[in-house]
Simulated scan of single mutants.
Amino acid sequence: MEQTFAKTLSANDVGTTGGHMGGILVPKGDGELLAFLPKLDPGVLNPSAWIDCTTPDGETLRLRFVYYNNRLHAPRGTRNEYRITWLTKFLREVGAREGDAFEISGSGDSNRYRIRVVPAKAEKPEVDDEGPLRIRLSSSAWRRVH
């Protein structure tokens, strides 16, 4: 089944804060999104999987989905987070800005996905067919696109 997830890009995601971007954060509590991405073994230090992503231009990029988990494996470890890395060049080439949406689509049963950046002005708010227009507020910048 085809699925699409989108993340509203932060200033840090697009590199405008001047800091070193460690990739786009994937929330540990989002089971649906984690099930969509390759399964990573938390019993291994910093497990990762390479995922092939096709851009709107037809180029295939290899991104890395990684679980930085040294907090679980080292006495002084501090990291316990999932990230999608190797995106910096793509985000710069497409002119991604804070507030734009990074979308990743696929069937979730292989390591092949499609990615794109949707400019903020082109995004449409979610519509509830049962009533008036509603805006969904979330503590996560990620959301499933229906």
Rank of each mutant, 00 (worst) to 15 (best):
Q3M: 15
A6R: 05
K7N: 02
S10K: 09
S10G: 14
V14K: 01
G15S: 10
T16M: 12
G18K: 09
G18R: 10
H20D: 15
H20W: 15
H20Y: 15
M21C: 15
G23F: 12
I24C: 11
K28L: 14
G31A: 13
G31H: 08
E32K: 06
L33I: 04
F36S: 06
L37D: 05
P38V: 12
L40G: 03
L40R: 01
L40P: 03
D41A: 14
V44E: 11
P47T: 05
S48D: 13
D52Y: 14
D52A: 15
D52I: 06
D52V: 10
C53Q: 04
D57W: 08
D57A: 15
G58V: 05
E59S: 11
T60K: 13
L63K: 00
R64M: 14
Y67E: 02
Y67C: 05
N69Y: 08
N70Y: 02
L72S: 11
L72F: 10
H73L: 11
A74L: 14
R76F: 14
R79I: 05
R79K: 12
N80R: 06
E81I: 14
R83D: 09
R83N: 13
R83P: 14
T85S: 15
T85C: 15
T88P: 10
F90I: 05
R92Q: 14
R92G: 11
R92T: 12
A96M: 10
A96R: 03
R97M: 13
R97A: 15
R97T: 03
G99D: 08
G99W: 02
E103Q: 11
I104L: 06
S105A: 14
G106F: 04
G106N: 00
G108F: 05
D109Q: 08
D109M: 09
S110W: 01
S110G: 10
N111I: 06
R112P: 00
R114I: 01
I115E: 01
R116G: 05
V117Y: 01
V117K: 00
V118C: 04
P119Y: 06
P119N: 07
A120G: 04
K121P: 01
A122G: 02
A122I: 01
K124W: 02
K124P: 00
P125H: 04
V127D: 04
E130T: 09
P132G: 13
P132N: 09
P132C: 08
L133A: 09
L133P: 01
R134H: 04
I135W: 05
I135L: 12
R136E: 11
L137W: 04
S140I: 00
W142R: 02
W142A: 02
W142T: 00
R144E: 03
V145A: 00
